[in-house]
Structures are given as structure tokens and as C-alpha cells.
Amino acid sequence: MAYDKFKVLTSTAVPMPIENVDTDQIIPARFLKATKREGFGDNLFRDWRYNGDGTPKQEFVLNNPIYSGKILVGGKNFGSGSSREHAAWAIYDYGFRCVVSSFFADIFKGNALNIGILPVTVSPEFLDKIFKAIEADPKAELEVNLPEQTISIVATGEKESFDINGYKKHNMMNGFDDIDYLQSMKADITAFAEKSLY
């Protein structure tokens, strides 16, 4: 599915300094019953965001109007748990294009990259600086520069590099996905399958 190309994103950010934010929090299983990919943003962080009667929990960060932006900043081990791509869909559908953490769970990270969300892994120290910058000024902006592979706190100019493999970087910058690539090598796959043991 096509997604927005990602080059340089400058935006305010939403802070979520909680560790082990798992996919059941991002999107609880009872909201996985759709057969189409639409509307998942409405249930992003459903049980942290809303009371049982559907009223917003005022203390939750997404319900606090002073925080907004296209970047979500989470604590260590973000996205642990289920393989549900719905978690990444919900984050994208809500309007985030980048998630920053000191550590991502593997499957979530892969899913994010496959649908056009850039997962940016920073050092625990830099993550702490980001949280402090947002705490000091909720309108503090971050700049995520994919071509340069850097993330910086705009006001202070503090900057760190992040890793991404060249193939995925190229895809993200151009809005390509893996299916396009795999379709282009069908002959190789057929030859491989013919020798397969199973």
C-alpha cells in the first residue's frame, strides 16, 4: 500500500516516557476485527486514552492539547508483543510518521518500515534529552533527517545519528515497498522454489 515519502520531518512531538509499550496497548485485540485497513487511529492507545464509557482520560498525553505533532517519542522496548501490523496502522492513521525510542521490538520495527513509519533508535541519553526538551517546552521541535540519518532537537541543535539499512532508506525516501521489489525477481524465486526440499 502506498505511503507518504519520507525525507526531512520537522515537527513537535508527543512524549510517552513509558517502557515496554506493547502492541496490546497500541491497539487492543478487540479492535482487530476489521477486514479493511481504515479507522485504526480512532482506537490508538484505546484503553489508556478512554474510560470504559468512552469519555477521554484527561491525564493521557494524546488527550492533552498542549502536545501534538507527527513524531511519537516512547520509552525503551517500544512495540513489544504481537505481530499485528494494526499497531503500526493505528499510529500511521492517527497522523504519526516517525517513532523515536532507545529500543524497538523487532517485529514492530519491521512493520513500521513496511508501511512508511520511520522508527528512529537513539541512545538512552539522547532519548532523555528529548523528553527533557519537550517537558521544558511542549512546542519544542525535532528534526528527523532521513537522507543524513540524523535526529536533532531544533532549539538546542543537539544531534545524534541513527542507523537504517540502505535498502530500506531508499524505499522510505521514495515511498516504495518490498512487494514491488519481489515482483521484479519472480524468475529467481521460481528457480529457487523448484529446488526446494519441501
Binding site: M1, S83, H86, I107, N111, D177, I179, L182
Partner: peptide, 10 residues
């Protein structure tokens, strides 16, 4: 191992 829906499509 587990995969996401984009990978199921792949």
C-alpha cells in the same frame, strides 16, 4: 517467526 500483514501479502 511472526510477520506483519504487509509480509503476509509478500
Amino acid at each position: 517467526f511472526g510477520i506483519g500483514t504487509s509480509e503476509v501479502e509478500m
